[in-house]
Design a protein around this nucleic acid. Sequence first.
DNA 1: ATGGTCGGGTTCCGA
Length: 263
Amino acid sequence: MIVIIIVFKIATWNVNSLKVRLPHVLEWMKKADPDVLALQETKSTDDNFPLDLIEEKGYHVKFVGQKTYNGVATISKSPIEVISTQIPNYNDEQKRVLTIRVKDIVILNIYVPNGSEIDSEKYKYKLEWFSKLHSFVNDLQKKNDQLIILGDFNIAPEDRDVHDPNEWNGGILVSDAERNEFKKLLSHGFVDCFRINNKENGNFSWWDYRAASYKRGRGLRIDHILASEKFSEQCLNCYIDKEPRELERPSDHTPVMAEFNIQ
DNA sequence: ATGGTCGGGTTCCGA
């Protein structure tokens, strides 16, 4: 009996300005060969989006941006159908969401608000944003079996995702309220792909630019790929690639990629 | 050691 495995690779990367990071992105795509790459913090208006430079490499891309802040884009080797460029029924000026379909897989690319400080206005916005996300995800689940939520969640789900849990204890990105939002996604039928096979601590996707955090290993795992439960059974592997964090002028985040058997 | 460094776009804000 011959078993055919078709591997479909889905990745996420907060690039912190696509204009600055496009060479890193194209180089990484050549190396890692993702079928889909979700980008956050493009910081590009739609007018200025480097559409031609991506399409001339043979990729498809959809994007939603704004001036100065936020912005998300999703690049794909095969054609993209856009489902939504926002959370429906949520009047939010900030461009943080892009939902697409590629090959019967629905992929929700999110840039979760950072939250700034506990109990700040931005923190309240982060929690409100999540409440709207949950109902959107619930709707998507009704219609789609193969569902991916990925992006910069700005949440380190557990202490093993934090370089020094005591130092971070209760702060932004690790507070109970934020972690509960992440847990709620898991309890509503999603699996954190990275944690299927890797239970270790010390695996991070973001290191602050300041205080030589990367060199000192002071990171957090805040970029995630969640798969709907049934689809997660097809996940073969999920890894964080630290290599781009070592380049000149790196993003403060590094890519995360999950591989699925779609046969 | 309670700071630091990026990016965008102006002379500061957000992360």
